[in-house]
Write a protein that binds this DNA or RNA. Sequence first.
DNA 1: CCGGCGCCGTCAGCGTCCTGTCAGGTCGGC
DNA 2: GCCGACCTGACAGGACGCTGACGGCGCCGG
Lengths: 220, 220
Amino acid sequence: MRVLAVEDDDRIARDVVAALEGAGFRVERVADGETAWFTGDTEDFDLVVLDLGLPRMDGLSVLKRWRASGRNMPVLVLTARGSWQERVEGIEAGADDYLPKPFRMEELLARARALVRRAGGLGAAVQEFGELVVNLNRMSVTRSGAPVNLTALEWRALAYLLVNRARVVSPSELLDHLYGDDAREANALEAVIARLRRKLGNGVVGTRRGFGYFFEGTSG
Amino acid sequence: MRVLAVEDDDRIARDVVAALEGAGFRVERVADGETAWFTGDTEDFDLVVLDLGLPRMDGLSVLKRWRASGRNMPVLVLTARGSWQERVEGIEAGADDYLPKPFRMEELLARARALVRRAGGLGAAVQEFGELVVNLNRMSVTRSGAPVNLTALEWRALAYLLVNRARVVSPSELLDHLYGDDAREANALEAVIARLRRKLGNGVVGTRRGFGYFFEGTSG
DNA sequence: CCGGCGCCGTCAGCGTCCTGTCAGGTCGGC
DNA sequence: GCCGACCTGACAGGACGCTGACGGCGCCGG
C-alpha cells in the first residue's frame, strides 16, 4: 500500500508520515505542488494525502490535473481553510474525502483506511486472525488474549505484511520499507522475520521461496 | 448537551441559537467577552460556539484564558471570512474547529455534532482508572483518594494522552502539542513524562519503544 | 527591590532492550 | 545428493529512554 503525502510544512509532514508508516503504509512525501503533480502523474499510489496550501502549484490545481489526465486514486484533502466553498471546490475537483486542520492523527488514519478499503484494499483498525488480534492504532497484538510484545521493527514488518496481505512481498521491498535508504543485508530481515514468528507462532508469516514473504490469515 | 453560544450580533445569535436548539442542544447565549469568560469558567458546557469580534473582551483572549485555566471543552470559533492570521491565532489559542462567516447553518450543526461526538465519545468529564480518578473539567487528579498536584505542563501531557488513549502518540506529536512552535529537545518531554510517572505511579503512562507514549487504563 | 520557592529544560550517566552479524543448521528444488 | 535459499541461537555494540542533579527563570510576598 503506497501513499503519497503532499505537505509543505515539515513538522506536520513528519508526524503524518510517521503515523502512516506506523500503520503499515509505504509513504512517499513531497513538499510542493509541481513535484506532487509530476509524482502522482507518473507513479501509482493507493492513496494521496493532499494539503491545499502548497508552494509552486496550488493543491486544488494539482488534483484537477490528475483527474483531467485520468488518475483516479483516492485523494484525502487536508486544508487549513475550513470554508464551505473550499470544500465544495475540493469535492468538485475530485477529492474523495476532506479533513480540516487541525486534525487528530487517529482521524487521519481512520479516513485513510476507509478510503483504501473503499477502493478495494483492506484495513479496519482492529483485525482478527484466528487467535491473533491486531490493533493498528495501539500498535498492539494479542495472541489467545495474551499481549505480544513486538519491537518497533517487528511491528512495522508485521503491519506491512498485513496491509499488503493480498500479495507476496519481496525481501528487497520489505528491506526498503523497514530501513529506507540505509540498507541492510538480507539476513537482517530474516532475523526480524524469525523473531516475529517465534512471538506470533506458526501460520502467520509465510515464505514463498524465491519470491518473498506473505501474511497468512489462516492461523493454526 | 449544553452549548454556550458567544455572539454579539443579535440577528446571527438568534439564528445560531435556533439552529442549535433545533438540533437538540440546550443553548446558553451571552453577548460579550467578559460574561463569556466568566460563564465558561464557572459552568460546564459540552461545546462553545465562540465569535471572535466581541465587546469588553476579545474572543481570543477569552479562549486563551479558558485554556490557561484548564478548561478543555471543545470550542468552535466563528470569525470573519478570510482572516488568515486570526485563524492561526485561534488554533494556537486552543480552538478545536473554525468556521468562517458567512456560513450555512447545516455546516455549523455538522461541525458542532462532530466536536461533541469527538469529545463525548471518550466518556464523561470524570473518569476512573484503577485507583486513579481524573476530572477533565476541574483538571484534577486523585490517587487512592489523595489529590495529586500536577503542573500545567504535566496536566496537558496527561490530558493529551488520555484523550488520545486509543493510540500511541509519537514524541514529536506530544512535543508539538506541549510547546507548539518553539521547540524543545526530546529530553524535555522525557523529563515531563518521568515527573508524571513519579506522581501518578506505574501503569498509567506507557512507553512503546521506537514509537511513543500511550495511556494505559489498566493501572496496577 | 530582594529573597525564596516552584517549575522545568538541560546535562550526564546508566540500565535495558534492540538488532545486525556471524556461524552453523535445515529445508526445498532439481 | 548437491546447492542455494532460508532459518535460528548466541552475542556484543549501540540506540533508546529513564533518572537524579543542577541551575535559570518567573512569580510572589515582604
